[in-house]
C-alpha cells in the first residue's frame, strides 16, 4: 500500500526554510513519503509537483508576509489545473489572515508554535479523506 505522500513547499522570495525542513522531517518520521521542493518556488511549480507526485496533501510554508497574494495565486492555479488536493499553510500568518486563507480554500492554517504532533495528525486525517 502506498504511503501518505506530502509535498512541503516554500513559495515566493523567502530564504528561511528551517521550519519547513523540521516539519518535513517530522512527517517522514511519522512514516510518510515527504517531497521537499526547496525554496523560492512559483505557485505553478508547486502545483505541477503535486500533479506529478500525486500528492495527498500539500503543505506550504511562507515566512515572508506575502502569504495572501501567493496562496491566492496558488489556489487559482490548482483550480485551473483541476488538482483537488488539500492544502495546508504554515508560517508567520497573522491570526486575522487565517479566515481569508480558508476562504480561498485552504484546509488548515498553522501559526508559529503549533506542536508537530497536531500537524502530523491533521495531515493523516486530510490524506485519509482524500484516499476514500
Amino acid at each position: 500500500m502506498r504511503r501518505i505522500k506530502v509535498i512541503v513547499a516554500k513559495l515566493g522570495l523567502d530564504g528561511h526554510d528551517r521550519g519547513a525542513k523540521v516539519i518535513a522531517r517530522a512527517l517522514a518520521e511519522a512514516g510518510m513519503d515527504v517531497v521537499y521542493t526547496g525554496m523560492r518556488q512559483t505557485p505553478r511549480q508547486v502545483v505541477e509537483t503535486a500533479v506529478q507526485e500525486d500528492a495527498d496533501v500539500v503543505g506550504i510554508s511562507i515566512l515572508s508576509g506575502s502569504h495572501l497574494e501567493l496562496v491566492k495565486e496558488f489556489m487559482d492555479e490548482m483550480r485551473r489545473r483541476g488538482v483537488d488536493v488539500p492544502v495546508m499553510v504554515g508560517g508567520i500568518i497573522p491570526p486575522e489572515d487565517e479566515e481569508s486563507l480558508r476562504q480561498m480554500g485552504v484546509a488548515e492554517v498553522f501559526g508559529p508554535g503549533t506542536p508537530l504532533s497536531i500537524i502530523v495528525d491533521k495531515v493523516r486525517s486530510l490524506a485519509a479523506v482524500r484516499r476514500v
Binding site: A28, G31, D33, V34, Q45
Partner: peptide, 13 residues
C-alpha cells in the same frame, strides 16, 4: 519509521 524525506526534486524544480 517507514517514511522518506525526498529532496532530489529540489535540483530540478
Amino acid at each position: 519509521s517507514g517514511g522518506s524525506f525526498m529532496g532530489n526534486r529540489i535540483r530540478m524544480q
